[in-house]
Amino acid sequence: MSDFLFVSAALFALGVYGVLTRRSAILIFMSVELMLGAANLALVAFARAYGSLEAQTVGLLVIALAAAEVAVGLGLVVAVFRMRSSTAVDDLSELRG
């Protein structure tokens, strides 16, 4: 098995760490992108291991989806910033139970 699977796991864990510790919505987003990239790396590594072109195709779709997600996500960030002049997600705690 490819060693890059382990690298993928490490990058994913880094992304998780980032999502949990970052406080700015943009940076959280970046961490999420890191996780997506890690997942894609795993896909490609598996594609290599199984000789499956399909996995690579899915990887391509993931990139396209990521583009859509970033567009909407950053749009949200900008919209929220307009309202509150802040990108810190901890400020968004109206849904306190």
Binding site: V19, R23, V89, D90, L92, S93, L95, G97
Partner: peptide, 11 residues
């Protein structure tokens, strides 16, 4: 009790 968990912090 469960509501205490819902602090409203996304993180």
């Amino acid at each position: 009790l469960l509501a205490r968990l819902q602090g409203g912090y996304v993180r």
